[in-house]
Structures are given as C-alpha cells and as structure tokens.
Computed example of a mutant assay.
Amino acid sequence: MLSYQHIYHAGNPADVHKHALLASMLRYLTRKDKPLSYLETHSGRGLYQLDAAEAQKTGEAEAGITALRSKFDADHPYVQALQAIRAEHGPRAYPGSPLLASTLLRKGDRLHLAELHPQEYAALSNTMLHKAKCHNQDGFEMAHKVAPPEPRRGILLIDPSYEVKSDYDTIPAQIAKLHKKWNVGVIALWYPLLTSGAHGPMLSQLEQGKFAGALRHEVRFPPVRAGHGMIGSGMFVLNAPYGTEAECASLNAVFS
C-alpha cells in the first residue's frame, strides 16, 4: 500500500496520451477570460527527471515522450509546456500533470492537488510551492470536500495508480457523486488498458452510468518492457470541452 512512485513510469506512452489530452482541454478552457479551478486526486510529485536512476531502470520514457514528441506540432500546448518546463528544470525534466497544468493556467486560476504518499507529497509541495494548494489526504476525500470549487468553471483529473485494486470497483460511484455535486465541471478519468482485462468491468459501469455526452478515448501501444501488462491508455471525460474529439483524432495519428 502506498508504494507506487511514478518516477519509474514518467514520460511513458500513457503519460503522453493523458498529458496531451489534458493540455488540449486546458488550452480551450483558458481561452475564455474567466478564472477556473484545477483539481487532481492523485498528483504524484509534480516533476520528474528522466535521467534519474529510477526512470533509467525501466526506460519507459524511451517508448513514450522520447519516441513520440516529434509527432506533435510545435504549437501543441503539451509541447509548449514541456519546452517551458525544460527551460527551467533541465533537458531531461518531465512534468507530472500538476506542473503541466500550472504551466498552462493563468494568474487567478486555482489548483487543488491531493497526494497521500508522504514522500511524494513532500516533493509535490516543494515543486508546487506558491502555485497550488496541496492536500496530504485521499484524493477523493479532497475532491468531495472542494467540489464544487470556486471558481466553479474547471476540471478534475482522476489519475490513480490502481495500486489499490478496489479502485476499479469504487471509481464509477465516486464519479457519479462528484458529477452530481459539480455538474458543470470537466471530470477526466485516466485508466490503463491491461492484458488482464481488470479495467473492463469499471468501464462497463461507467458506460451504463448514463452520463450525457461522455467521451471515451483509447490508444494502444506495445508493452514498454517484457512482461509489462499495460498495452494502452484510456481517458473517460464528462463535459469534454469543444475540440476534444478532434484532439482525440490527432492522438490516434500520433500513436498509429
């Protein structure tokens, strides 16, 4: 329990999928001259170095951001944010979604970030100092406490490690409750596509949840290393901003 550290997986193909789609949604939301809120339930440490021993041990970024970056247009917000972050933190830096979001957001926008792992929370607090309100608590508890946030416009990213296997069973009900409390919020759930099929029942429940206009997008890729059970990445989004479907189509080409 609480052993997961994303540094071993930072910048992998699933990160590229999730972060590119998140950046696209934030770009649209920030076009309006109105403040917004960004919430995240499983934040990690916020910033990773791909030449760290942990990242080098798995080498997952080589199949992810290293191989795929050239497939994005230079003006894509994901690429622009990555460039800005690497200019500040070094050429092998890779942002977690909290730092990616804060780079794309504006003064006046608010961030609430939850992380339960004590060491990851300490690193997150240091990375996001003066940029966000960090909560050392269960991410769903934070989301229910804050939602609906102020400002009311905004997005919630649910990005578990699924280290707690019961997440697959409990997430659909959590999303339903949060959507009821914050019906105008964009709620985005990331999930892995697994050879075990463990994600299947959760998705069936979500699809049966009668969320009007929900968007589901998946990309597939080879296992990043021998014996790895993740063969793709998915996002399930409620109240997806305009243009998200077009971004999904573009991501299909990136991963083709």
Rank of each mutant, 00 (worst) to 15 (best):
F211V: 09
A226N: 08
L124S: 01
K145N: 08
G227R: 06
Y162R: 03
E218Q: 14
L124N: 02
M202G: 09
A173Y: 05
A188D: 08
R220G: 08
R225T: 06
P222T: 11
G185K: 09
V186F: 12
S166R: 04
H117Y: 03
N136M: 07
G232C: 12
Y242C: 07
F236S: 07
L189H: 11
Q174M: 14
L189Y: 10
K181W: 06
L206Y: 08
A114K: 03
L193P: 02
V224Q: 13
V237Q: 00
A122V: 11
A143E: 06
H135W: 15
V184T: 15
Y242V: 13
F221V: 03
L203M: 11
A198R: 04
F211H: 10
D138L: 00
L203Y: 06
A147E: 01
V146M: 10
G197H: 02
T195D: 10
Y162N: 04
F140M: 13
A214M: 15
F236Q: 06
D138C: 00
F236R: 04
S196K: 06
K210E: 15
Q205H: 12
S166P: 00
E207Y: 13
E115V: 02
R153G: 08
I231E: 01
E207S: 14
L129I: 00
P149I: 01
G227I: 07
L203R: 12
V186H: 13
G185Q: 09
S125A: 14
A198F: 02
K133H: 13
E163H: 03
K165H: 10
E218P: 02
P241R: 09
V184D: 13
A226W: 00
G234S: 04
P160E: 00
G200P: 00
K133M: 10
H217R: 05
L203I: 10
Y162P: 01
P148M: 04
F221T: 03
H199I: 03
T195Y: 02
L129W: 00
S125Q: 14
G139S: 01
H199Q: 15
L124V: 01
Q208D: 15
N183K: 15
V186L: 13
G243N: 05
R152K: 15
K210R: 15
L156P: 08
L203C: 07
K210A: 15
L124I: 01
G209Y: 07
M230H: 12
S125H: 08
A143G: 07
I155P: 10
E150N: 12
P148W: 04
F221K: 03
P172W: 00
H135M: 01
D138M: 01
G227N: 05
S166T: 12
M128F: 04
Q137E: 14
Q119E: 15
Q205V: 09
G139I: 01
N239K: 11
A132E: 03
A123I: 07
P223A: 13
L238M: 01
K145H: 11
P118W: 09
A143V: 04
D169Q: 13
A212P: 01
E218F: 01
A147G: 03
P241W: 11
G234W: 02
G200W: 01
N239D: 11
D169N: 03
K177V: 09
L129S: 07
L206T: 10
A188H: 11
V219T: 08
